[in-house]
């Protein structure tokens, strides 16, 4: 449906905005490497089914694109010259292990098929995605204010989540028996994390 597509497009746009920013400004200052690495982990654990679930060409293609773009971003941040010298590890100080560990435990404990390692990995990726933006938000707070393109990037990620939430409501009403507790609860948590950012983003845009 169109709402879901809008979500995917803003998600994809967020990658391109970030790649544009780090290529154009030659700097990754203010970007959390931890968040970007968590996204690589999210996509790699969620999309292992790319090898056997062929629901549509669109889905398979988007999975490849999401993995490739997230790996590319981490690559430029770690290896790019001069980008790698502009990274601020002292500001990227969020204790990310405390995000990953509970998500692993949750993924093992709460999933759609307790006998399947894939379902555990999949549930883990859903839980981790919900909180993966936290190191980035933490960095924005420590920095004081995010650069324009960085804030557009975060905004697009939050927007993607909002579109997906609306899409779930739509699907629940139009598709018989459509019901996804794990995804909905995690998605709602994820959206809530953006509230404070959204508020400041809109406020600063009004000021400009």
């Amino acid at each position: 449906n169109a709402i879901r597509l809008a979500g995917d497009m803003s998600h994809m746009a967020s990658f391109f905005v970030l790649l544009f920013k780090i290529n154009k400004s030659k700097s990754v200052a203010g970007i959390s490497l931890k968040t970007q690495e968590l996204y690589v982990l999210v996509f790699c654990t969620r999309y292992v089914d790319i090898f056997w679930n062929h629901l549509s060409l669109y889905n398979s293609l988007m999975k490849v694109i999401f993995i490739a773009l997230s790996v590319m971003i981490v690559y430029v941040m770690r290896r790019g010259v001069p980008q790698r010298s502009t990274y601020n590890p002292e500001l990227d100080s969020f204790p990310h292990h405390w995000l990953v560990l509970p998500c692993v435990l949750l993924g093992v404990a709460i999933n759609q098929d307790p006998t399947s390692p894939f379902e555990m990995a999949w549930a883990f990726s859903i839980y981790l995605e919900a909180v993966a933006i936290m190191p980035q938000l933490h960095m924005v707070q420590k920095h004081g204010e995010a650069e324009n393109l960085t804030s557009h990037y975060i905004f697009l990620l939050g927007l993607y989540r909002v579109f997906y939430l609306v899409n779930w409501v739509y699907r629940y009403m139009t598709e018989d028996g459509y019901w996804q507790a794990i995804v909905w609860v995690s998605g709602a948590v994820q959206a809530v994390l953006y509230l404070d950012f959204f508020y400041n983003y809109v406020k600063s845009k009004q000021k400009d």
């Binding site: 679930n53 629901l55 889905n59 399947s116 999949w122």
Partner: peptide, 10 residues
Amino acid sequence: KNAAEKKDEL
């Protein structure tokens, strides 16, 4: 719907 069929989102 089974678990695999439900995974039609990204």
